[in-house]
Write a protein that binds this DNA or RNA. Structure first.
Length: 815
DNA sequence: AGCACGCCGACT
DNA sequence: GTCGGCGTGCTC
């Protein structure tokens, strides 16, 4: 194109000081290969760093311009729209461009540069028993050690190495090691022509097995994986070796893709007939995809209304038009049946992306998307960055779920990313939920997004009956058990009839704390100040911190008053399990929580066992609340609705409502009528009451007034700053400084509210103190730039003080 | 981020 | 007098 152009490169460092493009010369031989989005290796000061080309300029206003050292990929990993998206991410969530780029790419992508050293010319003159002598000896003894390794070993060697390189005693050459490797297997190929083949057979007269192998490969004509040749013919590598030596066969390295989900189903499943409501939803979405104009829908359908079938058919229609589709699910490891349905319907056309894949698997799924081998991706949050060329449809299922907010920088919200990409690609976004986030429902009310309601369950299934039990009455009536009379009776009945039961417990961290009934002492983690949780493993009673992992033995007497009234309180899954065994000794129980599901595949295994009816009761934390669909479950019990109602978060009511509604939806999804029993010490709370009646709209009406009154989302957006430091005073000082600057900045702006410096709800985590400052505003556009300046200044000070200041734009939760 | 340059205290 | 502490400043 142009005669001379300089590449603008973002280097991999996540630091505000280098958060801008640097210019590099593009060597002649790479002019063609280098594009926007190309990953390169560049010299940066004394180092070599990975970088991404984000643009080109004809002139660079810098005197010193070095050339690019290496081009790291054949195809640029970032498409131009992803480069643009990275720019947007860094502005919207106030992170560096490097952090934004890295968020877009699979974690295995990053390359590592290393420097090899070689002694050249005459050995240097060194004094015996000196640093130089040690280095020289090391260079002779282990010539393969990289410069980086040597420096890590003895930092004092750094200046010597530099000098020797300058004097020509040492020669440097650099290597680039890719993060995730392309996986290859060894295959065998016979490239002899018929005549040569016949001659070879003659020559091998008595080597029967060798002749067999050679003939097999000659017949195949193409390369066959060595593993398959050996097992097919019962040969061993010693059979193959002479054939290779004689040149009758060649080894070929073949690229393979790791496939975490195995071979696809041979018979693609046919689309199911749609109900009238499904048809209408499908028609609207498919029509919007056709227009190729950005549009967002809220698909609000109760559990069991058949949203998934609408998704599947809308995606099919999008794919037929040659465009690609992204399907997000909250936590894919918990919803294997969604992947299953996609694989059944679309076979090999689906890539799967989630955190439980290995780095290599992620990298390969990503490559399949980038190369255009698939047109559909199903995945968790980060799948929203799938490098497709032309996206037609993006679906976010259970859009209200917290997992759609990334928990480290950049703290992006998948829904916002989807809407930005929709504008880039002219795509349609579908937000699906039975209990939409309040913001989403509000925007639908305001007309910014189109709402489609699917109120009925397919096959006319009834919504389950929900009973709310006032646990205070139970106590007054002398029932001190964790099961109310109603729940106990319900479980007994199901056990007799051979039906199944799901028991649900809110968050385990808040569950079983240890309290002294005499003096009120609560056992806390020394580091985190969070109540410790009681655990019983192999008869050993332990207290554990769920944030840092600290563990100690359960004390026998109170550390404070020395009394012997220390008891564990609340209800952890283990205690409920014990209680279940005591009260219902005949029932099999499967417990699902963080402890029993840590291994790979343990989720799926436990669920399969429950599905096979190996146990009648499934007991678990919120991880069992979503996506489960068991035909034989007719009773769902919530041990205590209160635990989630009293977390210090403005979304507590919304979360509780969503959780209870969702749990209720788990019962009676099939032919058997379902029942839900919710136990609570606050049964009159509106979140509990509206959930009991499954009245989303009424809940929305009520909650939106609450939000309006206290200036919370959707009426304001929240941005939270957290100052973290091992030194409490420093953490506090930085937070105060930031608060002051924000107040000065927004003086006289009554549309902006600053919630002053306060200890974070998790005020001490892993030995570090945490203070929050929260900013509430109406339009980010009006505050983004000023916030950035103030934030960067304060963050720099935080760093100098040995801590850090993190920012969460559009915070969903204040922690 | 890292690495180098540069300016002040305890040692041969 | 030097070695080395880590405080600013730069990296195309």
């Amino acid at each position: 194109m142009s005669s001379k152009r300089f590449a603008e490169v973002i280097v991999e460092l996540r630091s505000a000081q280098v958060d801008r493009p640097f210019h590099y010369e593009v060597p002649e031989h790479w002019q063609e290969q280098v594009q926007i989005g190309t990953r390169v290796l560049v010299p940066f000061g004394p180092r070599r760093l990975e970088g991404y080309i984000v643009g080109f300029s004809l002139a660079a206003d810098v005197s010193k311009i070095k050339p690019i050292l290496e081009v790291l990929d054949d195809e640029p990993p970032l498409t131009p729209d992803l480069v643009d998206l990275a720019g947007w991410l860094s502005e919207r969530y106030l992170c560096t461009k490097a952090a934004a780029v890295q968020a877009l790419l699979p974690s295995g992508m990053r390359a590592k540069a290393s420097t090899k050293l070689r002694l050249a010319g005459d050995p240097p003159f060194v004094l015996p028993a000196s640093l130089e002598a040690d280095l020289l000896q090391s260079l002779y003894q282990s010539p393969n050690k990289t410069k980086e390794q040597l420096i890590a070993e003895r930092p004092e060697w750094r200046p010597i190495l530099r000098a020797w390189v300058a004097e020509g005693i040492l020669e440097e050459s650099y290597r680039v090691k890719q993060g995730a490797q392309v996986k290859t297997i060894t295959a065998l190929q016979c490239s002899l022509d018929s005549a040569a083949f016949q001659a070879a057979l003659e020559e091998l007269s008595r080597a029967k097995k060798q002749k067999e192998v050679l003939a097999y490969l000659f017949d195949q004509g193409v390369a066959v994986p060595m593993k398959d040749v050996l097992s097919e013919l019962g040969a061993s590598s010693s059979t193959v070796k002479p054939l290779l030596e004689k040149g009758y066969l060649q080894k070929v390295e073949q690229e393979v893709l790791r496939d975490p989900y195995g071979i696809a189903h041979e018979q693609p499943e046919q689309p199911l007939p749609l109900t009238e409501l499904q048809r209408s939803a499908y028609d609207q979405i498919a029509a919007a995809v056709d227009t190729q104009k950005p549009e967002t829908f809220l698909l609000q359908g109760v559990t069991g209304s058949g949203k998934t079938e609408v998704y599947l058919q809308a995606i099919a229609s999008c794919v037929e038009q040659g465009r690609q589709a992204i399907m997000l699910v909250p936590e894919i490891a918990l919803t294997p049946q969604m992947v299953e349905r996609f694989k059944k319907r679309f076979g090999d056309d689906v890539a799967v992306m989630h955190s439980r894949l290995s780095a290599g698997e992620k990298f390969d799924e990503w490559r399949r998307i980038r190369q255009g081998d698939v047109t559909i991706v199903v995945g968790a949050r980060s799948a929203i960055f799938a490098p497709f060329r032309s996206i037609g449809l993006m679906i976010i299922d259970e859009e209200h779920e917290v997992s759609y907010k990334q928990d480290d920088h950049p703290k992006y919200l998948a829904r916002e990313v989807a809407m930005y990409r929709a504008r880039q690609h002219g795509a349609t976004v579908v937000l699906g939920s039975a209990t939409p986030a309040l913001e989403t429902r509000w925007w639908a009310h305001q007309g910014q997004i189109r709402r489609i309601e699917m109120g009925e369950r397919v096959m006319g299934q009834r919504l389950p009956k929900v009973k709310v039990i006032d646990m205070r009455n139970e106590l007054h009536e002398g029932n001190r058990s964790m099961f109310s009379k109603a729940l106990k009776k319900g479980i007994e009945e199901r056990l007799e009839k051979g039906e199944q039961i799901i028991l649900f417990l809110n968050r385990r961290g808040f569950a079983t704390f240890v309290l002294c009934r005499s003096c009120g002492y609560v056992a806390r983690c020394r580091e985190c100040e969070i109540p410790l949780t009681f655990h019983k493993a192999r008869g050993l009673e332990q207290l554990r911190c769920h944030y840092c992992g600290y563990a100690e033995r359960m004390p026998e007497t109170c550390p404070d008053c020395k009394g012997d009234h220390v008891r564990h309180f609340g209800t952890g899954t283990q205690r409920v399990e014990e209680e279940l065994h005591r009260v219902f000794p005949q029932a099999g129980v499967i417990r699902m929580d963080v402890d029993t599901t840590s291994g790979k595949g343990s989720h799926a295994e436990l669920l399969q066992r429950f599905r096979n009816q190996e146990a009648q009761i499934l007991l678990g934390t919120q991880m069992i609340a979503k996506g489960l669909d068991f035909p034989n479950v007719t009773l769902v019990g919530v041990i205590s609705a209160d635990t989630s109602l009293f977390v210090p978060d403005f979304r507590a009511a919304e979360r509780t409502f969503q959780l209870l509604t969702q749990v209720a939806g788990r019962a009676g999804r099939h032919l058997l009528p379902g029942e839900v029993v919710v136990q609570s010490y606050n049964p009159q709370h509106y979140a509990v009451q509206f959930a009991k009646k499954q009245e989303y709209e009424n809940f929305f009406q009520h909650e939106i007034r609450v939000r309006y009154g206290v200036h919370n989302p959707p009426f304001r957006e929240l941005t939270a700053f957290t100052s973290v430091n091992t030194d409490e005073d420093a953490a506090l000082r930085i937070a105060r400084t930031l608060e002051d600057r924000l107040r000065t900045l927004f003086q006289g702006r009554d549309d902006i509210i600053i919630l002053g410096t306060s200890p974070a709800p998790l005020s001490r985590l892993q030995g570090k103190y945490r203070f929050n400052v929260v900013l509430k505003y109406i339009r980010f556009k009006q505050v983004g730039d000023p916030i950035r300046t103030v934030y960067l200044e304060a963050a720099h000070e935080a760093q100098k003080a040995g801590g850090y200041l993190s920012i969460d734009v559009n915070a969903q939760m204040i922690l």
